[in-house]
Simulated assay, not measured.
Amino acid sequence: MSPSILGRKIGMTQVYEEDGTVVPVTVIQAGPCNVLQIRSADRDGYSAVQLGFEDKPRRLASRAERGHVAKLDSKRSKKRADAGVELIEKAGCEPQRFIREFRGETDLSVGGTVTVEIFDGVKRVDVTGTSKGRGFSGVMKRHNFSGQRATHGVKKVHRHAGGTGCSASPSRLFKGIRMAGQYGNTKVTTRNLELVRVVSEDNLLLIRGSVPGPNGGLVTIRQTNKVG
């Protein structure tokens, strides 16, 4: 598994390089993350590690969420144990608010911890988050249309899309026509961003430029596989 971690976007600021150059950076509170499960090709059909970020209060967690990270006594677990079925190892931590899997072989173990120190020596990263939701938006905001003319016979349709298709033939709209609709609130990945600084004592990553989502949004960070 390439260096990967979960975090929360704090906001943007700027730092100075040694030559005095100002660098705009996004500050991300990354980890520490608990290792919840290890996927293996023999048991699961693929290799991966499952990480969890931020403790969730037990009063807000369902029984399934609590049982995912800690052993709970139940009739089913007792029957499986009596039948000789090997139970999956639990991390023994609090329920986690944000859980994601990262594919690849790993030497981590269940119950371990991943911190920002895993990014020491990493130069470039990919950041995945949920973009800001903007609701039902028109074509000018959603697709950067220029809109209609301000005068010369245009009435009450200044921000409309205009014509969208043909007439009698083929008497329908082709798929993929850009129209008004839901904008934002989708999974977005920004690739090949420069990792400016790793602040281990505060569990912070400083990444050059902007990353998807609002301040306070949950993100995944991993070493990029993009060349160049």
Score class of each variant (00 low, 15 high):
residue 170 P to V: 08
residue 48 A to R: 04
residue 38 I to C: 12
residue 53 F to T: 02
residue 180 A to W: 09
residue 217 G to F: 02
residue 43 R to Y: 06
residue 80 R to N: 11
residue 26 T to M: 14
residue 55 D to F: 11
residue 76 R to Q: 15
residue 87 L to P: 00
residue 127 V to R: 12
residue 112 G to P: 02
residue 62 S to Q: 08
residue 174 F to C: 10
residue 36 L to I: 14
residue 152 H to Q: 07
residue 124 R to F: 05
residue 42 D to S: 15
residue 219 V to K: 04
residue 121 G to W: 08
residue 73 D to C: 03
residue 123 K to S: 14
residue 14 Q to V: 02
residue 97 R to E: 07
residue 55 D to H: 13
residue 149 R to I: 02
residue 184 G to N: 10
residue 88 I to K: 15
residue 70 A to C: 09
residue 89 E to S: 06
residue 192 N to V: 11
residue 92 G to P: 04
residue 171 S to N: 14
residue 156 K to V: 11
residue 117 E to K: 14
residue 1 M to S: 09
residue 150 A to W: 02
residue 58 R to L: 09
residue 21 T to L: 09
residue 200 S to L: 03
residue 96 Q to L: 12
residue 28 I to Q: 07
residue 93 C to D: 01
residue 206 L to P: 02
residue 187 K to A: 00
residue 36 L to G: 00
residue 201 E to A: 09
residue 216 G to K: 11
residue 99 I to E: 05
residue 41 A to M: 13
residue 92 G to W: 11
residue 86 E to A: 15
residue 147 G to W: 05
residue 85 V to R: 08
residue 216 G to F: 04
residue 76 R to I: 13
residue 18 E to P: 00
residue 98 F to C: 08
residue 186 T to L: 13
residue 205 L to S: 11
residue 100 R to Q: 07
residue 13 T to P: 08
residue 136 F to E: 05
residue 151 T to S: 12
residue 84 G to E: 06
